[in-house]
């Protein structure tokens, strides 16, 4: 039987809501809200597909706890000098790989567009999310979110979370 059909309808709706809310938060610069999509003992990585597939552990960004996510938010607000930009996520329908013992394994394709002030909108980062999700206080939260990106050359830098 297909895993997706084994998941009850409410879980699917909750998952779609999580993906939608996450994209809305990171596209509207609500970084403090971004942190709250994760459990305390979480993992968030932005990793080139090359490293992922060749088994190299290096990530472009590897945040290993909710506190580290908060450190990143502080960095975005206070320490990282950067040319301001908007980002816009388009996230595909999630595929649910597993839904067992309250833990969901899911993935979805994403494309992020970047728009700089006085500039055109360009494709910034393209890849897929590999997610591990669990229910906490009645809400679905990320235990881990890996952003595995195809984009071979990062257009200069990545400041905001994907």
């Amino acid at each position: 039987m297909d895993m997706a059909t084994a998941t009850n309808g409410q879980t699917v709706i909750d998952l779609l809501r999580l993906y939608g809310d996450y994209a809305a938060a990171v596209d509207s610069a609500q970084w403090d809200k971004w942190v709250e999509f994760f459990v305390d003992d979480c993992e968030y990585k932005i990793q080139p597909r090359e490293n992922f597939e060749r088994g190299f552990p290096l990530s472009t960004l590897a945040l290993l706890s909710k506190n580290m996510l908060k450190d990143r938010v502080y960095g975005i607000h206070e320490t990282l000098y950067h040319d301001p930009y908007y980002q816009r996520h388009v996230v595909g329908m999630p595929v649910i790989r597993e839904d067992k013992d309250g833990v969901i394994i899911a993935e979805a394709n994403y494309a992020v567009f970047r728009t700089k002030l006085s500039g055109e909108s360009t494709v910034f980062n393209v890849g897929r999310y590999l997610d591990k999700i669990r229910r906490e206080d009645g809400k679905l939260k990320f235990v881990s979110r890996l952003c595995i990106y195809d984009t071979e050359m990062i257009p200069n830098s990545i400041i905001y979370p994907i």
Partner: peptide, 18 residues
Amino acid sequence: IQANLFGPAGFVSADDGE
């Protein structure tokens, strides 16, 4: 973990590219 400071998304090096 310290690699987080460097590279295109680094806490430090991202601003060099900018």
